[in-house]
Design a protein around this nucleic acid. Structure first.
Lengths: 218, 218
DNA sequence: TAGATTGTTAATCGATTAACAATC
DNA sequence: TAGATTGTTAATCGATTAACAATC
C-alpha cells in the first residue's frame, strides 16, 4: 500500500484535507462522489485528486466515482488514524492546557495520559482529569507506559532537552510547538506548529495585498 | 521591491524561517554571513537562499556575503513586521486565552486590544488586562478602532459568521484556528492554523516510518 | 591584484495538469 | 450497449539546483 516509494510532502499535506472533506460528505449522508465533485469542494483539480489517491491505491470505480464511506475509511488507514496513540504533553502552561483540552474535545485517538512540568507549583494539579507530573519522571513514564507521541509546549530553551528525553523514553513522534527546529534522529516523526512563523506569514500576506492595491491605484 | 510579481507560496513559507535564523545570528553578535553558512544553519541550499533573497532585492555584497543586521531588517520589512497591527480575538475559550497570552508574551507588533465572546459568563472578564466584550459589539469595534487583524478561535460552526463580521468591520487579515476553510474575498489575507490536520500529518509520518522499518526487516 | 561570494542565467528535477484508454 | 468516470501515461509548468560571470 505505502510500498516504500517516498510520498512527497506536497501530497502528505493534502491528505488530512481530503479526509476532512470526505468526513463532511459522510456526515451529510452522501454516498458517492466523483473527482470532479471533490475538486469543486476542495479546490484541487480533479486530475490532482485522482493522482494523489492513486499513489495509495485504486479506491474508485470507473464510471461511478468513489464511495464516500470507503474512501474515508481508506484515508483514515493511510493517515494512521485507525489506531490509538498514547500521548504525553510536556509544558503545562497556557498553551499546554489549551492543547490538552483541545485534543480531549476533538478526541480522535490521541489520548493524553499525562502532563509534565518542572514547575513545582503545577505538579499535582490536573487538567481535564489528567495529572501534571514532575519533569524528572518523564523518561521512565514514557518507557514504562509505551507512550507513542510527545507534545512539546515548553519554551524554546528547554525544547531540545525535552525532545531528547522523550526520544530516550521511546516515543515515535513529536508534535512540537516551540519555535525551534529540533534535532531529531531519522526514525522519529516530527511535526512542527510554529505559531509565530504562521503569524509572520499572515503579516506578509497583508502587506502584499496592500502593495497590490497601491499598484492598482497607479 | 515587491514589484507585483506574485511571490510563490514556497518562498513565502521560507521567509519567516530566514528571519528566525537571522535573528539568532544577530543575538549571537554575528556580523556577516554567507549563503553557504546560512545553508548549513537553515538546511536550504545556498543556491536557493540566494534565489529567494534576490526575488526581493540584492541584499548581499559580492565577495563578502550578507550583513546579518541589514538582512534581518530587510526581512522584517518584507514580512511587514516593521509596523504594529491592531488585533482582536474572537472566541475567548481555552485556545483563545492561550493565544492571547502567547502573542502578549512574544509581543512583536501584534497587539490584541480586545477579546470577544458570545458567552455572557465570559463577557467582562479579562485575559492579561484585555477585556472580553460581547460578540454583538464586534463589527462596530473593528470599524471604530481600525482593527487590522482578527483571530478566530471559535468552533467550526460559528467561524464563517465571525469571519464575515470581521470583514464587514474592515480587517485586513484573519488568523484562523477553526478547522474549516473560510470563504474570504480576494483582498483579505488569511492564514490558517489547522491543528487537527497537523496532528494527522504527524500520525501519517509515524505510520510511514513504521512501515519503512517493517520493510527493512524483510 | 587575487580570492571570495553574490546575482543571475541555464539545466535539471519534480509536481501539476491534460489527455485518453480502460472499464464499470 | 452507451455513458460516465477512473487509472495512468504523456505534456506542461514551476521550483530547485548547478554553474559561472560580475564585482566587491
Amino acid at each position: 500500500m505505502n510500498n516504500n516509494t517516498k510520498i512527497s510532502n506536497a501530497i502528505i499535506r493534502r491528505l488530512p484535507r481530503y479526509r476532512r472533506y470526505l468526513n463532511i460528505l459522510r456526515k451529510r449522508g452522501v454516498k458517492k462522489v466523483s473527482s470532479n465533485e471533490l475538486s469543486e469542494l476542495i479546490g484541487y483539480t480533479a486530475s490532482q485528486i485522482r493522482q494523489d489517491l492513486n499513489t495509495f491505491g485504486g479506491f474508485g470505480q470507473q464510471g461511478y466515482g468513489y464511495s464516500v464511506d470507503h474512501l474515508y475509511k481508506e484515508l483514515n488507514k493511510i493517515l494512521g488514524l485507525d489506531r490509538e496513540y498514547k500521548t504525553v504533553l510536556v509544558g503545562a502552561g497556557n498553551m499546554g492546557s489549551a492543547i490538552t483540552k483541545y485534543t480531549y474535545y476533538y478526541k480522535i485517538g490521541f489520548n493524553i495520559v499525562a502532563l509534565f512540568d518542572n514547575n513545582p507549583a503545577l505538579v499535582g494539579q490536573k487538567v481535564n482529569d489528567v495529572e501534571i507530573l514532575p519533569f524528572e519522571d518523564l523518561e521512565d513514564f514514557v518507557r514504562d507506559n509505551g507512550i507513542d507521541i510527545g507534545i512539546i509546549t515548553v519554551n524554546q530553551e528547554s525544547a531540545q532537552d525535552v525532545a531528547d528525553t522523550l526520544i530516550r523514553g521511546g516515543v515515535k513522534g513529536i508534535w512540537n510547538f516551540a519555535p525551534i527546529d529540533l534535532e531529531i534522529p531519522d526514525h522519529i516523526a516530527i511535526e512542527n506548529v510554529h505559531l509565530s512563523e504562521s503569524l509572520h506569514t499572515l503579516s506578509f500576506l497583508i502587506r502584499s495585498k496592500e502593495l497590490e492595491r497601491e499598484e492598482e491605484n497607479n
